[in-house]
Amino acid sequence: MVVDDHPMWREGVARDLTEAGLEVVATAANGNEALARFPAARPDVLVLDLQIPEPNGVAVTASVVALDPDVRVLILSASGEQADVLEAVKAGATGYLVKSASRQELIEALSRVAEGDTVFTPGLAGLVLGEYRRLSDEPARPDLPRLTDRETEVLRLVAKGLSYKQIAERLVLSHRTVQNHVQNTLRKLQLHNRVQLVRYAIEQGIDEPE
């Protein structure tokens, strides 16, 4: 399913995916359309532009992940505004790509996200590192997510632009282990985000989420 308010982009991406042998089950031009068509279309992967008419990409990500925890969200953003990208990832997106990425990069990213892998740009890795640093500056609480030394090391190498293969060679790990480490960094952040939301709901007196 492709969500983008720019018709040329939406159709371009959909065509690229179809030509690569993938099935595009739905397209949408804004957040409301996306949320309306999502339950019927039931896509495996949502390719989502962040800058769409309200509700924006972050809100759409949170909603579809709540509807279907198995859906994968690949963010495709032109401007890649830092705060938005980080929020989308915390809301449950597992892949991020700038729009200038080539067709091959898009297809490859999409199939990796579909398999449950995470697709990071170095820029996103840098942001996630920064987010963990900010969390560690908060007063110590047992429920704050922390990275292990190894996870930090792997994430740092991703931020420096090394491919998973290069990281595996450098740290003498298997490719799969590197993937797991990267996935964990995101999973902890998303879990923390959900815990925060639930706590907020309880504090507001809405103690039965969903």
Partner: peptide
Amino acid sequence: VTVSTPGPF
């Protein structure tokens, strides 16, 4: 040249 940062610093 790819530049990665932790956000505003």
